[in-house]
Amino acid sequence: MKNVAVIGSGSWGTALAIILTKYDHQVKIWARSQAAVDEINSKHTNEKYLPGVTLPETLTATTDRTAALEGAEIVISAVPSRAVRQTMTDFVPYFKPGTVIVNVAKGLEDGSLLRLSQVIQECVPQCEVCVLSGPSHAE
C-alpha cells in the first residue's frame, strides 16, 4: 500500500484516484475548491466532472497543500497543462526530496514548448518525475 496524493480534482485526477483506492492505496485529492472537497468527503461524488459515479468512502480530499502531500510517496499531477508550472511552483515547499511525481496532463507548455514533465522537473528538481501517457477518457 502506498500513500498517494492527486493534485487536481477534475475527471482524470478523480478517475485515477478511484482506481488507486480500489487497489488499496491510501489516496487524498487536493482541490482548489472547498465545495469540491466538501462534496467528495461528504457525498462521495464529484458530479461536476464524473456525474453518476460514487467515489470510494476511503478517498478523501482537501484544499490544504500540507495535508494533501503529508506522507505521500507518489504524487499524481492532474491539473490542466496551462496550470502545471504555477501549481508545481505553489507546491514546491511541500514536496519531500525523492517523491515521485507522475504527470498525467497532455501537451506542451505555451511559450517554452517544454514537455510538462520538463516543466515539473524544472520547478521541483528534488523529485523524480515520470509520465503516464496515452489516450485518456475518465468517463
Rank of each mutant, 00 (worst) to 15 (best):
S11V: 03
V79N: 00
E128A: 14
S33M: 13
I76L: 08
G13K: 03
W12M: 12
A105N: 08
D24R: 10
F95S: 07
R85K: 15
K96Y: 11
K28Y: 07
I101R: 10
S81D: 05
D110V: 13
Y49I: 01
A68R: 04
P135I: 10
S136M: 09
L108S: 10
P80Q: 12
V92I: 15
N3T: 13
L113N: 11
S117H: 04
I40K: 01
R115P: 04
I19A: 03
C130W: 08
Y49E: 05
L113Y: 10
A5I: 10
S81H: 08
N46R: 04
L114H: 04
V104M: 10
H44A: 03
R32T: 00
A61W: 00
Q118F: 13
L132G: 13
V53L: 14
L132I: 11
T66W: 11
A83D: 11
K22M: 10
Q121F: 03
S77I: 09
T14G: 01
H25S: 14
L114W: 06
L113E: 03
V92P: 15
S133R: 05
P93W: 00
L113A: 08
G111S: 00
G111E: 01
Y94T: 08
A138K: 02
I74M: 15
W30K: 07
E122C: 05
S77F: 02
D38G: 04
T89V: 13
A17F: 08
N46K: 07
N3E: 11
P56G: 07
V6T: 07
L69T: 07
A15I: 09
L55N: 04
I40E: 02
M88H: 00
D110T: 13
D64Y: 04
R85W: 10
